[in-house]
Structure formats: C-alpha cells, structure tokens
Amino acid sequence: MPELWMPGAERHDVGDHAPTDQQYPPRAIAHITWDRDASPAAPQDWVPFDDLVSYFTGSGRGDAPHLVWDPFSGRIAQLFPADSRSKSLVDDAGGTRTNRAGAVVIQIEAVFFPNCRRNGRVYGVLTDTPCAGWDRLHAWIASWGVPDVWPMGRPVDFTSRRDEYTWETRGGWYAHAHVPENDHQDPGPWPDFSTGSPPPSQPPPDGEIARYQVTIGGLRYGYGAHGEHVTLVGRALVAAGFGRHYTSGPGPDWTDADTLNYADYQRSLGYTGAAADGVPGEASLRRLLGRLPGERPAVSVAHLVAAARTDPGGGQGHRTYGTEVKIVEQALVDEGLLDPAWVDGSFGTRTVTAYAAWQRRLGYTGSAADGIPGHGSLSRLGDAHGFIVTE
C-alpha cells in the first residue's frame, strides 16, 4: 500500500480525518494560496512558507489542504493523511461532495501568488519559480493511483472551466478552477508531469536551503531522507573535511546541515549554481563514497595480483590498489583468517599468508596456494562476502 504520509514531508496532523467517497476515481487538486493581490506594476513580497503552515494548522484549519508546498525551497508540509478528505474546496450542501469525491482527493496548496517578489525578483506565475520538490510530490501522488492527465486541460492561465460530468467520471489532476461549486481561478500555469525529475534548473534564492529529494540507486537523498545510507554520506563528508555545519551527528536523518556540508563538497569539485545546492547527484555521490550504497563493490584480479606481488617488498604499508585490497582483507577477516588490525589496503605479507590459508581452505595445494589471488579463489570469496570480480 502507498504511504499515507509523504516521505520527507513535515508532518502537521490537524486531526479531523474523514473518509473519501470511493465510488469516484482518484484525483489531485492543484491550488495556489493567492494570499495577496499583486500586479506586474505593483508586486508584493512573498508570504513565508512557515506563515502559511501556521495559518492552515491554526485559524485556517477549516480550509486546510493535504499538502502545503514551497516551490522555492522544496519544503512540503502534510496536514491530512492521503486517505482522508481535506478542506480546501467549497462544498455546497446537496451537491457533489467536492472534498471527498474520489478514491483519494489529494489537495495541494503551492505557497504562491501572481507577481510575488522574493529576494528582489518578481515571479509572475508558479512555473516561473524553481518548482523545487515537484518531482517527489508528483511521484507520491502518482503512487496513490492518480493518473497523469488533466481531464479539463492542464492549466496554462487563470481561465475557469467546469464540467460536473467530467469531474465525476474521470480521475486525474484538476485545477481549483475546474472544480464544480467553486469560483476560484487558480492555480494558473502548473508544472508539467515530465518536469521536476532533475534538480531545479536554478539554485534556491539567496538565504534559502534546498529542501527536495532525489532518488539514486533506489535510495532517497536530500532533506527528510532517512536511513543508514544517509549516515554513510555524513561520515564520508566529515572524513573528507566537509563537516563544519554539523553540531551533532551525522545521523540517519538528512537535515539542513547535511545539505550545507554536501554543497561545500560539490563546490570543491567545481560545481556551481543549482549543481551545488547540496542535494547529491550520482557522479558526486560516487566520487564521495567510491560506489553507490547498495551497489556491490568490484575488485580486479589483475589489480589484486599486482598488489600481492608489489606491496610486500614496497615497505611497511605500501598500497598499490588500496581500495580493492581492503575489500578482500575485510572478507579474510570475516573468514577468521586475518586480524582486523591489518585491514589497511596493503597486500603485505600477513595478507598474503591469510589469502594462502583461504586457498588451502578451498582445497588448493602447492603453488596454487601461494597467497597470490586467482580468479577462482577470488570469485569464491566474493560470492561469500558480496563483491564482484573482474579481470
């Protein structure tokens, strides 16, 4: 079953849950908060995300949506679980129960009004913003069976169009301007389903921290992500000298400190703008960790042979292919053949001796058990300890 609470969203459960009307198809409703009236000639300052969350969880809870979305930073707050109705639509007594008419009726309020001014820049319509976080918002809603269609047309302006038969019979995405019994004209232009998969095309405005997520190798990274892979990234950042924003941790929850530290790391690699906003990309993550979490490490037979022939005579701690050697050394430790103190990346005499013991355990004798890895013995070790072997 899909998750009732969107992963990575800030949860502010306002209670008062109520079921939806399951005889209708699943749908999502797009709104903008439109909390101020502005014009190109007279723009007004954008109202902060936290102010709108406070409103919808306080005096405005009678109009609260499921999700409040900041399209500048990617922050998302969730107020109702997916299987409950929310309250952002007018619902005339005796008509279609607009807030409930669907297997799900997930309502999104983008924190935006036309011609809002943010950090000195004016944004005429929602799609002028970075639309940060749209990709994960869209993906979560799609997981609830809401199809990627606009039965009354994708909104491209502030024109109303309402047809109750279409509303009642077709699932998909609807603008507030499409819903029967309502008279609002929002949201205006809304991001396309194909956009938002990559990070934003521009960095967050000055002073803002990116708060969206990406999926790499099946794992989530970015604000709100959780898991041991997050701890792994944090520890790697500290080890690489990019941990100055941590006051505690790192830990399994991706926080703003992780984002700021990762942005420092990205800039050290030469990334700029949106590519250095602190949310990982696959290339930078692979460079930081050596491989992606969940990805089986690989060792080369040729590299291991070269190390086993070179390191013993190269002086204490000599490392020819240190990363690959450490993978094999750890496997030998797990087999009880090498002291953990010698997992140092150097295929020295103790590692040669331990590997020879592994070869003898497999039944090799004589020169076939000389401690120099071969493809067969190395593959057997890899199969037992989760690494793959290349030539």
Rank of each mutant, 00 (worst) to 15 (best):
R136A: 03
L126P: 08
I141D: 04
V146F: 02
T127R: 13
T129Y: 10
G120W: 02
N119I: 02
N115D: 15
W144E: 04
G124M: 08
L126Y: 14
D148P: 09
D128N: 15
V122R: 08
G124F: 08
P130V: 09
V149W: 01
C116R: 04
W144C: 01
A132P: 00
P114N: 11
G120H: 07
P114C: 14
T129A: 06
C116Y: 05
C116K: 03
P147A: 10
T127Q: 12
L126F: 15
R136K: 07
G133M: 11
P114F: 10
H138N: 03
G133P: 06
A132C: 00
V125W: 11
W144K: 05
D135H: 13
P114M: 12
G120L: 07
L137F: 11
R136T: 10
A142E: 12
R136G: 02
S143C: 08
L137H: 09
L126T: 13
D148T: 09
G124E: 15
N115Y: 15
W144D: 07
P147H: 04
N119C: 11
D148C: 05
L126H: 14
N115V: 08
P114K: 09
V149A: 08
A139E: 12
P114I: 09
A142R: 12
T129N: 13
C116F: 07
G120C: 09
A139T: 13
W134A: 02
D128R: 10
G120K: 10
W144N: 03
A139N: 03
P147Y: 11
L126R: 14
P130C: 06
W134E: 00
W140Y: 03
V146A: 04
V146N: 06
T129G: 09
G133N: 08
S143Y: 02
P147G: 06
I141E: 05
G120D: 10
C131I: 11
N119E: 15
W144I: 02
R118T: 07
N115S: 15
Y123D: 08
V146T: 07
A132W: 00
W140M: 05
H138Y: 01
C131L: 13
P130A: 08
V149C: 03
A132M: 00
S143I: 08
R117A: 11
D148H: 14
C116N: 14
R118F: 13
C131W: 13
Y123R: 05
A142Q: 10
G133A: 10
N115T: 09
N115L: 09
R117D: 02
R121I: 13
P114E: 11
P130S: 03
I141P: 05
A142C: 06
G120R: 07
V146E: 05
V125P: 11
H138I: 00
R136P: 01
D135F: 04
L137M: 14
V149F: 01
C131A: 14
P130L: 07
A142M: 05
P114H: 11
W134S: 03
V125N: 15
V149G: 01
T129S: 10
W134L: 05
V122C: 14
N119P: 00
H138C: 03
G133R: 09
S143Q: 06
L126G: 14
R136F: 00
R136L: 00
C131Y: 11
G145A: 12
G145K: 07
C131N: 15
L137Q: 12
D135M: 03
A139W: 02
D148F: 06
A142H: 08
Y123L: 06
R117Y: 02
N119H: 10
